[in-house]
Amino acid sequence: MKIQKILFSFALACFLLIGCKNEVKKEKLPVQKENVSLAISGMTCEIGCAKTIQSKLSKKEGVIDAKVVFTDSIANIAFDANTTSKEDLVAFVSGIAGGELYKASIAPKKVAHTCTEDCKETCQNKTTATETEKACCSVNEDGTTFCKEDCKMACCADKIAA
């Protein structure tokens, strides 16, 4: 009986020593949010492919938000750059389903188009604008005229060519 008490006391002491050991806590860095768009090839359906990729991406450590658009074959991902990287996300998506179905790459960024002031004035001046430019102009509820985004490029392209 005495041996059992000694063994029990020894086991309890070991448990307390091990259980009360100070754990080394990782320093938590503030979230460094970045966005990336990935072009994904190999998707054949919206439910089985796009939703599966989106679900797996959403569960990946460091991913803040993920949206997969099947019709465009694009994944728009917001992630914490302290935890993961663009290259890691490309490898992760390419590795889904054993790495044989999907291939991901970083989609090229769209360059924002800006019109010159001269082009904007021509578009807004309906009396001197061409018929194409007139079709591109709209009037807001407050009476101000503006160019529709896709027409700004056509208007500016005409000015550059001239």
Rank of each mutant, 00 (worst) to 15 (best):
I64P: 04
P108E: 12
I74Q: 12
M153L: 03
K109I: 07
A135V: 01
N140Y: 02
S138L: 08
T84W: 01
Q124C: 12
C14F: 15
F79N: 06
H113A: 04
N76I: 10
M1S: 13
K60G: 00
K5L: 01
C119V: 15
K134L: 11
T130K: 04
T116R: 14
S85R: 09
L57E: 05
C136K: 04
Y102D: 06
Q4P: 02
A157P: 01
V36Y: 03
G143H: 02
D65C: 04
E27R: 15
I6Y: 02
L16K: 13
S58P: 10
G143I: 02
A78I: 12
A161P: 09
M43T: 08
C137P: 02
I40N: 00
L38G: 01
K59D: 06
E121R: 06
I106N: 12
L101F: 11
T84E: 01
E149L: 09
A13Y: 06
K126Q: 08
N22Q: 07
P108Q: 11
K25C: 03
E149Y: 07
K5F: 00
V68H: 05
C151I: 04
S105L: 06
T122R: 07
V31Y: 03
N76Y: 06
M153W: 06
K25W: 06
T145L: 05
C137V: 03
T127L: 15
A107T: 11
L16V: 12
I96K: 06
K86A: 10
K103E: 15
K86Y: 05
G98F: 15
L29N: 07
S9Y: 06
K59Y: 05
N22L: 08
A91G: 13
K103Q: 13
A157H: 03
A66S: 12
A50N: 00
K56V: 07
V24K: 07
E131R: 05
G48H: 11
I6P: 00
E141I: 00
L7V: 09
I3T: 13
A154R: 08
V24M: 01
T132D: 01
I53P: 03
I3D: 09
I64W: 02
C136A: 12
T128L: 14
I53V: 11
C14L: 14
D72E: 15
G143A: 02
E117W: 03
K67R: 11
A50S: 00
I18H: 09
T132M: 05
K28G: 13
C14E: 08
T71W: 15
Q32I: 12
E133Y: 12
K60D: 00
N82H: 04
L7T: 04
E100M: 11
F8C: 15
V111R: 03
C156P: 09
G143Y: 04
N22E: 05
F146K: 08
G95Y: 03
A157T: 03
T71A: 13
K134D: 08
K110H: 10
L89M: 14
A154W: 11
A50Y: 03
K26S: 09
N82D: 03
L17N: 01
K33T: 00
A91K: 15
C151F: 05
L57M: 08
C147D: 09
I53H: 02
V31R: 09
E100C: 07
Q54H: 06
S37G: 11
D150K: 04
M153P: 00
K86S: 08
C123V: 11
T84F: 00
S105V: 09
F92V: 10
A81D: 01
E117I: 04
K134Y: 09
Q4C: 06
K103R: 10
S85N: 11
